[in-house]
Simulated assay, not measured.
Amino acid sequence: MTTSTLSLAPGDGAAVRDRYARDGVIQVDGLLGADEIDAVRAAFMTQVETDRGAVGAVDEVPADDILARYPRFMNPHRRTDLEVGRIARRLMTDARILDVVTAAVGPVYGAQSMFYFKPPGARGQAMHQDNYFLRAHPETCIAAWIAVDRCDAANGALGVVPGSHTMEVVCPEEADPAQSFTTGLVRPREGLSAVRTDMRPGDVLFFHGSAVHGSPPNSTADRFRRSLIFHYVPRSSVEIARPYLPLIGADGAEVTIGEAVGGGPCGDGWEGASH
């Protein structure tokens, strides 16, 4: 896996549009400030250490797995009674993030927020495609992946496959459970290969819902690789999977569109992956 050369400076909308159309992935360095990221880190660590069950914590690993202590949080933006929820809702609708997303795909609604802790020794997540889960149609989703820690090879930085956004969303294979805490694996088509991102706190990676991405385990003894992630869908989307409703407008208002039906690319009954 080679090191990423996907970075752009903030504020260049034309470059964002062109790079996104070409690669399906863009890294914008320094989009959020150090003080903001420190506040995000502190709030989520306090939440997970005091009441990790309050914020949509996903129960998906054995009790002796380090990720049982630091589970990923799903949709904290819906818990505005908590500090982590207020932070997530505010950043989901932050103009700096929405400006990049809008430059890439046009006006959007917020669909999902997530927080990954990825503590020392944690397994990674096998290569996958996000719109397999969101099932936005006829458009696809776009992710804004915010680095909360320094992300590099040692602590399991994200790997992405430029150009894979032109693939269809496919039914995953079974992943290696020694390497991935999720079970679905998507292989990029022949001729495409992954690059490893190199990110500092406040850098944001934006990528297409069909873009293949994932990460290896955190092999460090003392470094987390935390991240706050948002997913958006273009306003032209007419349906999305039920768990992502209601959507959130740029003004914070809740919006409802149609619910996606059927089983997606694997058909009904597939349980080989989770998100």
Rank of each mutant, 00 (worst) to 15 (best):
R123N: 00
D198Y: 01
F73A: 07
G56Q: 11
V84K: 02
D59Q: 09
C266F: 09
H208Y: 13
D94V: 00
D130Q: 11
R72T: 02
L192W: 13
R96Y: 00
D268Y: 02
G252R: 09
W145A: 01
G159S: 07
E139C: 05
A95G: 01
A9C: 07
P162E: 08
R200M: 14
T50I: 05
D130F: 03
A194D: 10
T166D: 13
G110M: 01
A68G: 04
L185P: 00
G124Q: 11
A144L: 03
E139T: 14
E60C: 03
T183W: 04
A14T: 14
A103F: 03
R90N: 09
Q179T: 04
P172Q: 05
G267Y: 12
T93D: 01
A144P: 09
G156A: 06
F73M: 15
R79C: 10
R90M: 13
E83Q: 14
P119H: 11
Y244C: 06
L67K: 12
V195L: 08
V25Q: 03
G202S: 10
A154S: 12
G202L: 10
A241L: 10
V195E: 15
L82M: 15
I97D: 05
H165W: 05
Y132I: 03
L228F: 13
R96E: 01
A253T: 08
A250I: 00
E60D: 10
G267T: 11
G110P: 06
A43Q: 07
V238W: 00
T256M: 12
F115P: 00
P172K: 06
I229S: 04
I66K: 08
D94K: 01
R79E: 12
D268P: 09
G124W: 09
Q125F: 12
V160D: 01
G214L: 11
H213G: 07
R17T: 04
P201S: 04
A34H: 12
R96V: 01
P119F: 10
L32E: 06
A175N: 07
V108H: 01
D65R: 04
Q125G: 02
G214A: 12
G269Q: 10
D23K: 07
S180G: 03
R123A: 07
I87S: 05
S236A: 15
V58W: 00
Y116D: 07
S210T: 15
I87C: 06
T102P: 01
I257M: 09
P62L: 08
G263H: 11
A57C: 11
G263E: 12
D268V: 11
A126F: 06
E174F: 13
A175I: 14
P177L: 13
F117D: 12
R17S: 14
D268L: 13
E60A: 13
V148S: 02
V160S: 02
P177Q: 12
G269S: 08
G121P: 03
R226H: 03
G184W: 03
A122W: 04
A9H: 11
P234Y: 10
A157T: 15
D18T: 13
M92Q: 08
A273S: 15
M1G: 04
L98H: 00
D130K: 06
H165N: 13
V100N: 04
T140S: 15
Q129S: 04
R22F: 00
A43Y: 00
D23W: 04
Y244Q: 13
R41C: 05
G159D: 10
H231E: 15
A178V: 05
V148M: 06
M1L: 02
A144I: 00
G191V: 12
F224T: 05
H208F: 08
T182I: 03
V100H: 01
A122C: 01
D38W: 02
